[in-house]
Amino acid sequence: MNMLFPLTYLGYLLATATYLLWFINQQRTARLAARWLLTAAGILHTLNLGARYFEAGHTPISNMHEAVSFFAWSMTWGFLIFRWRYRVKNFGTFVSVGISLLMTVAALASKEVTPLPPAMRSLWLPVHASIALMANAFLAMGFCGGVMYLLQEREIKSRRFGIFYERLPSLEALDNLNQHCLSAGFPLLTLGIITGSFWAKQAWGSYWQWDPKETWSLITWFIYAALLHFRFTMGWRRRRAAIMSMIGFAAALFTLWGVTYLLGGIHAYVG
């Protein structure tokens, strides 16, 4: 049992606490500290994943703990890369809360290293699972953007300004954020489904067999596809886009967890 995971977890919690402090007091030092803490936690997390790879002898995305941990890792680095290219005021606060929640789930799940079942011994495991989880990471950021949009819009619409009006960026910026997250997340989601179907062909002999996980990933895909399509044809933007991307992410989360626990199916051994 190595100490890397608890350290990483602690790092994320500290980063989140500092981000929340920055959100309240809006002092530059708090923001810088939060970003360094998050980057440090992200580096620790990378080391943690690497160590686990050598310990298990396979890509560490084979159970719930590993999948959610990888999800959180993708979200961290997705956000850090994202903010290097494109900044959104106080986005980090919301993302870091999301990362901490995911890491809490990972911390609560069993951290046992399990031997890989024969069906999963494939090159498609790292490819499919990492792409699908990275898609989730960007969709999760879209979800954060949607929450921010609705919070900001509620204050502007009700004409009663509370804590968010000053701190959140313009509705336009939040809508763009949603769009950016989707334009990264949706291709990854598509790719995740395609690679999954190749893997299914290799493991079970058919590209698509309507297993609950496949069905739900398709439902998620359709929600996001509809959002992207109607955004350009019918002007589904702003409030509607924010709500849709939240619904879409709920479907993505259900695909990841709900299916496993509620519906079962051949994916069941994967987190």
């Binding site: 900001q152 502007i156 009006y165 960026p169 313009s170 509705l171 336009e172 910026a173 763009n176």
Partner: peptide, 9 residues
């Protein structure tokens, strides 16, 4: 200010 919060630029 409000216009900027709604429209950005």
């Amino acid at each position: 200010q409000l216009a900027k919060k709604i429209f950005g630029s």
